[in-house]
Design a protein around this nucleic acid. Structure first.
Length: 316
DNA sequence: AATTGCGCCAACCGCCGACCA
DNA sequence: TTGGTCGGCGGTTGGCGCAAT
């Protein structure tokens, strides 16, 4: 037997909320608070599911909510935190006063994800596409690598062509010699004749990445990101280091893009499992505790202790 | 002017963990 | 310990509005 529904579906209104409904809910909560969401719609005279009321309140009606565009600082915070904690939107939202998890999630899905993709970074792993390919390639033999490259190119090509045909990429990377294979994907225009050229260059970049195992670094973003500011002097993993969040260092340094350097260093510096100490000095873990605590990223309250592999796990 | 495609975002859904009797 | 209930979370969907054709 399944779980009983949270309310009788037949008598429940769904869809957009009307101003009258908003008023009823707001004034009821102002008087009685938000205890027992199941009873709130009944007592407030609303034909809504309690869950729907809670959502409406937390995502829209709450007086402390900030509506409107995300600032650059907020976007950077989201990017940084996403690199560390993945899709834990409530956790990320908890660091952005006035923003809800739904806000953050929507903004990520509609804007930031595309931004990253446009920068050649996989929004899930926060690694460059070419180096993901290269990493995979190191575990395969040449025939599989060839097949993989072809398959991946199919995907990347579609994605890149889509981006190229939509509009010019806003953020321009100033290529340097250490970036090598990234030359192809930045500073590009949407001219039709540039598309095929770009695809060819992507192909070339992938081939290079695969053929240069010394460019590949371990699956440890903290090493890369911490090294972001050292990109120009370090050897070995330069290409990846420069590109991953170090990319923003390039941009920040060279063309003043909002994707500044702090983004890299902070993500790297703060990697780790989210362990908090409560007021009694006891550790707690998980979203709820974190949400209830003060800013988890304030330097005096957090202890980072996440197993390294987890950091690149989008499910973490 | 009409149609189509796309982006954005509010709202919904199902799952899960916490809490309590 | 177990089962019922609730609230919270993340993924997904649907509808609206705008831009392009």
């Amino acid at each position: 037997m399944g779980r009983i529904p949270c309310c009788e579906k037949e008598n429940v209104k769904r869809g957009q909320w009307t101003p009258e409904e908003d008023n009823k809910l707001s004034s009821y909560i102002a008087q009685h608070g938000t205890r027992n969401w199941r009873l709130i719609p009944k007592n407030a005279g609303l034909q809504r599911c309690g869950k729907s009321c809670r959502l409406r309140w937390t995502n829209y009606l709450r007086p402390d909510l900030k509506h409107g565009q995300f600032s650059q600082a907020e976007e950077e915070t989201i990017m940084k935190l996403h690199a560390v904690v993945g899709n834990r939107w409530s956790l990320i939202a908890a660091q952005l006063p006035g923003r809800t998890d739904n806000d953050v999630k929507n903004h990520w899905n509609t804007k930031l994800k595309k931004k990253l993709t446009g920068m050649g970074i996989d929004p899930v792993t926060h690694k460059s596409f070419s180096h993901l390919m290269a990493e995979i390639a190191t575990t395969l033999g040449p025939p599989q690598v060839a097949n993989l490259t072809e398959a991946a190119l199919g995907c990347f090509k579609d994605e890149m062509l889509h981006l190229l045909t939509k509009k010019r990429i806003d953020f321009q990377l100033q290529p340097t010699s250490s970036q090598g294979n990234m030359n192809a994907t930045y500073g590009m225009s949407t001219k039709p004749d540039a598309k095929e050229d770009t695809v060819v260059k992507i192909k070339l970049g992938l081939s290079r990445a695969i053929q240069q195992p010394d460019m590949i670094i371990s699956n440890k973003p903290w090493e890369t990101t911490v090294g972001a500011t050292q990109t120009h002097v370090n050897g070995g993993c330069n290409a990846f280091t420069a590109f991953q969040y170090g990319q923003s260092a390039f941009i920040a340094e060279e063309d003043g893009s909002p994707w500044n350097q702090s983004m890299c260093s902070t993500a790297g510096d703060q990697l780790g499992h989210l362990k908090l100490e409560d007021e009694n000095g006891e550790e707690s873990e998980g979203g709820k505790e974190i949400r209830n605590g003060s800013s988890i990223f304030s330097t005096d309250s957090i202890l980072w202790d996440l197993p390294s592999d987890d950091l690149m796990n989008p499910m973490v």
